[in-house]
């Protein structure tokens, strides 16, 4: 496949890219991001997500408006900044995507397998999860990250996530920490965020979901972890699995105190 042209939108935006060959790729990407910030296509997903939330769907012909994201049924504002969290009705710690799947099953009557058939979209085959996550997270923009770890199961998830972050394995004997445990490193052309430092952990977590320009898609945190599992040469990370939720809990909690700032835009 031929990769998509990164600079193309700038033509439409009337911004010339210029042939600044000396400047670093990171600086160019930063400039590109800045030019796009005013028109982040993530908004298209946000609009679809808000519609989806209100649409009556599934065997029970119900909307998701009664879904409890942790702050009470139907409360969306700021909910993402406190997730993952423990949900007594499911007796389980859940991240946003897992909770949405839960609500699609309990409120709308979908079977879990049907609801989660397409968790990552491609082109016009869109994922409801990506649209819903775009809208719900946009309703937490500016909210301070506050993952409480008040419940024993939340603490358990955090500890498991921490263990997984440092667990080395696979054909290359990689851990997450192998790529994300030191500052100022990069792989290929990408800067590797140091997720073991407060600032790095905060910046990374608070900027997902994001519109991935190279894919032309809105991607969620489950997708981010999935792609890093692939880079780590680990088996596929199962959507809504305890492993994915534990890692998310670990990374979300480490971002506590920072203002949530997504959907963002990434290369």
């Amino acid at each position: 496949m031929i990769p998509r042209r990164m600079a193309a939108t700038m033509l439409a935006a009337g911004v010339a890219l210029g042939a600044s060959a000396q400047s670093s790729p990171e600086a160019e990407i930063a400039k590109y991001r800045e030019a796009l910030a005013a028109g982040n296509p993530a908004e298209l997903w946000e609009a679809r997500g808000e519609d989806l939330w209100k649409q009556k769907r599934g065997p029970k012909n119900a909307s998701l408006e009664a879904c409890d994201l942790g702050k009470g049924a139907g409360v969306v504002k700021g909910a993402y900044a406190e997730m993952p969290r423990y949900f007594a009705d499911a007796d389980r710690v859940m991240d946003l995507e897992t909770r949405l799947a839960h609500c699609m099953v309990t409120l709308q009557g979908f079977r879990f397998e049907d609801a989660t058939k397409r968790v990552f979209g491609a082109g016009t085959n869109r994922s409801d999860f990506e649209s819903l996550a775009a809208w719900i997270t946009s309703e937490a923009r500016g909210t301070t990250m506050n993952v409480a770890l008040a419940h024993p199961k939340e603490r358990e998830a955090y500890q498991l996530g921490e263990k997984m972050f440092y667990f080395r394995g696979g054909p290359h004997d990689f851990a997450c920490a192998t790529c994300h445990g030191e500052s100022s490193k990069r792989i290929r052309l990408q800067d590797l965020p140091n997720l073991t430092e407060k600032a790095g952990a905060q910046l990374a977590y608070t900027t997902w979901p994001a519109y991935r320009v190279s894919q032309g898609e809105l991607r969620t945190f489950q997708w981010r972890l999935n792609d890093c599992y692939r880079q780590q040469r680990f088996p596929d990370l199962k959507f809504a699995s305890d492993a994915s939720i534990a890692l998310t809990t670990f990374l979300a909690r480490n971002a506590n105190g920072a203002a949530f700032n997504a959907p963002a835009i990434k290369r």
Binding site: L11, A12, G39
Partner: peptide, 14 residues
């Protein structure tokens, strides 16, 4: 008039 050099999900400001 646009062609194929414009990216997916275009943004236009004027």
């Amino acid at each position: 008039q646009w062609g194929t050099a414009v990216a997916k999900n275009p943004f236009l400001e004027f």
